[in-house]
Design a protein around this nucleic acid. Structure first.
Lengths: 116, 116
DNA sequence: TGAGTATATAAGTATATTATTATATACTTA
DNA sequence: TAAGTATATAATAATATACTTATATACTCA
């Protein structure tokens, strides 16, 4: 894993920023920075279709920013700490306000998944 | 100007990241972080058309990330330090390797503009 | 003032991105 | 094993983006 200040490939940084440059994905990644989440939680949070969420997650997964893990019926996503640009992403996310209130809302609604 | 850790609008952060998520613009902004540059220098550096460069600069200008200043025949661009997201952008750029070698090449070629 | 240089903008085209709809896969549980 | 739930993928349509070509504007200097 690259440490901050080690040499980074500008092209890959641009690609990472482009991925984060979408409101839905940015909030997703920010949420994942503090909690693993499953697909249906994102569907609920973003009030959008399940395929749309899956496609965003796929993009993040394709570049190795997130990883998936099945837990029973659900597939949970988490940040991939082994990714070369994990530290870089952390620095960016660190400047963003927490989005955890969105998860709180799910808990209040009773739609937060806490299996396993 | 927002300090890092003050509340930022996620939507605007996403928009900023999207703008930086283009290799040409990312390098432009990184270069501007250390030196003002004029349009024709960018044209030379990126080996692309002048309108293409102008259009990238316009996008950056439209959100207030950069500002322009005429100096004689040339228009010089610089980072807009008054922008609310200047600090945020600084943090991102700080993690990128310097791109100043591109300006060095111009100097060696004799195509660096140093008017005024 | 006219020619040359620097830059911006408009229009058109090619490509990329995002969301939707339809469908397939995989797991759970009665 | 059948029905229900969760997720992924494929195909398509709508929209956004980036580059090119053509043209307009503004400055400089002979």
């Amino acid at each position: 894993m690259l440490k901050t200040n080690e040499v980074m490939d500008v092209e890959k940084v641009a690609m990472t920023l482009k991925l984060l440059g979408d409101k839905t994905r940015l909030i997703m990644v920010k949420l994942l920075d503090s909690h693993d989440c499953c697909v249906c939680e994102f569907v609920e949070i973003f009030k959008t279709s399940q395929p749309s969420i899956s496609q965003h997650l796929r993009k993040l997964r394709d570049v190795g920013l997130v990883k998936e893990e099945r837990r029973g019926q659900w597939i949970f996503y988490s940040l991939n700490k082994d990714n070369s640009y994990y530290c870089f992403v952390q620095q960016v996310l660190g400047q963003l306000p927490s989005q955890d209130h969105k998860l709180k809302e799910l808990e209040e609604q009773g739609t937060r998944i806490t299996c396993c």
